[in-house]
Amino acid sequence: MSYFILTNNPLVKEEFGKSHEVEFIDGRLIDVLTEARDKISCGDILLSHPLYGSVKPNETPYRSLLLQRGKKSGGSDFPPADPESVRLIGNAVSTFEKFIVKKEITNPLLLEDFQVVDLSLLRSAVESADR
């Protein structure tokens, strides 16, 4: 399947940059979610869930997502937005806003731990997509 990875996690870029299409965002977790929201409103489709199951969005600075490019249909200049993707990314942004954002994390060991967990969760999605 043709898809791309949207991420602000440097470890994901390092790991998948050569084998997959990676769009790297030099920014915060919320910047990844809002960029995904913009892309989805222009027709791209979410392939992985934008929230984790345990690590909360105000806790980790990283987020990596799988998206599929939208396909134009009919006479429109843009592909139609996928309603389920719109709903999921909207809920994820609302959820992020609900949590109180903590102080910026600067400890490199802690940052590495968060990068490794984000990579692990993304990898589980990539393995499903690449089957």
């Binding site: 984790y52 199951g53 345990s54 690590v55 969760l121 589980s124």
Partner: peptide, 8 residues
């Protein structure tokens, strides 16, 4: 069951 990757 929680099944998402490391620690999950």
């Amino acid at each position: 069951l929680q099944t998402q990757g490391l620690l999950h």
